[in-house]
Nucleic acid binder design. Structure first.
Lengths: 229, 229
DNA sequence: TCCAAGGCGTTAGCAACGCTTTCGTAGCTG
DNA sequence: CAGCTACGAAAGCGTTGCTAACGCCTTGGA
């Protein structure tokens, strides 16, 4: 048989699968763990300590889940899959998730820090790829904040806010804002640079020679396909 | 003296100003309201019923707050001030806010619906102004979800996520995404249309597609790349 | 004026809760 | 074997949400 501490933690997790944390009585935990009442308090101080410990091992599962996500060469896409795995975890473990992210006042689950660190490292990769246009710290806080909001609302009001489309919408909005939407960025750059250059050329004030114009018309006809519509 | 029901509600609200809802005992409420214990149950059925009633009148204050916001002729700016007043309410009434937006399981605070309706009407004004590029319903769900997320995280982890900059960042990201960021839109439109027109003028051809512009922009940078900036 | 009816206060108490104390026992270590 | 730690059993404390029983007092229709 395993140690008492392990059995208590396991029993609490099992009960947490079907009930809310506050609806679980210490006696039920003890019954299921085949443990006397004082054992909880010898091991965890009080019920809140036990719940915090459970939240911590929940965070470990949560982070292990995330670390299992393969890193692609598109760090922004990785950000999106991290978001999705976050949401999936919340929906799979509703009560555990609420315990982790709606803690009792003055109870600091120390593992929120770890989640933040993991997210920041993913964002660091975005920054290295030139795909970050907000401060790193602020980007991480914005993403996690919005991500948790989507999950908590989906858990609290599944009827009104359980639609997966909401998650996608908020996800793309926030991640797009902090990393910059690639398509729009190139569209802006291309369009504006082109327009400025052409205007300069036309007015004679520009740093573009006629060879550039030649190249432009060459490009206009296209590499293989002379397409416009 | 006022009626017993009013006194109970007032006493609960007052206690809610300093304690969490779950930390409030029915006896404390009764003491403060000068009421016997059975009165709560005659009036509200049970403690959860009382808390739901308090949450409802909290929603009324919340909505009255929002309705007090003047409507300007910029519906998107109105959206942002509504967001900010939402956050201010949450920070001013932390326990009441948590009671409203993290309800006990199977307790439907009916007033969340009202908040949604108010937000949708504001979004409808955006749509009428041509400043909405996502479905109305989804836009409302996205905004409220993100808004609540910012607030709950700020309340739960004021140290890590209490920074007002996070609220601004998420706010502008989400609202910008559903309404379309005006500045970027005009920059894109202006740049592209201008480029298309000029290229058409220069080459004597019809306006070109944006993929052609991308090719042009590439060509502009050139093989030897006499880049300007 | 009388007399129900109902809103409200009082007392007492139940079961369940978190938590504690006490005690007994098993198993390992020196 | 002695002594220590780890753990289980039982009982109990104070508080909680909630209920039962009773009685007061105002109200309003007869």
């Amino acid at each position: 048989m395993s140690t008492a501490r392990e059995r208590i933690l396991a029993a609490t997790e099992e009960l947490l699968a079907s009930k809310d944390a506050l609806a679980i009585s210490t006696r039920a935990i003890c019954d299921r763990a085949k443990v006397g009442m004082p054992e909880i308090y010898r091991q965890f101080g009080d019920k809140q300590g036990l719940l915090t410990a459970v939240a911590c091992i929940g965070f470990e599962r949560f982070l292990a889940n995330k670390r299992r996500n393969p890193m692609t060469d598109d760090p922004v896409a990785d950000l999106r899959t991290a978001w999705d795995s976050h949401v999936a975890f919340a929906l799979d473990n509703p009560h555990l998730y609420r315990l982790m992210f709606t803690p009792a006042p003055d109870s600091q689950p120390p593992a929120v820090e770890e989640a933040r660190a993991l997210l920041l490292s993913a964002l660091e990769r975005c920054r290295a790829a030139g795909r970050l246009r907000t401060p790193l710290e602020l980007a991480g806080q914005s993403i996690l904040t919005a991500n948790v909001g989507v999950c908590l609302m989906a858990l609290s009001f599944p009827g009104l806010y359980g639609d997966p489309g909401i998650s996608r919408s908020v996800r793309d909005a926030v991640i797009g804002a902090v990393t910059g939407d690639e398509r729009e960025d190139t569209r802006i750059t291309d369009g504006i640079v082109l327009a400025q250059t052409l205007v300069g050329t036309l007015t004679g004030t520009a740093p573009v020679g006629s060879d550039a114009i030649a190249r432009l018309s060459q490009a206009l006809r296209g590499p293989a396909s002379p397409r416009d519509e």
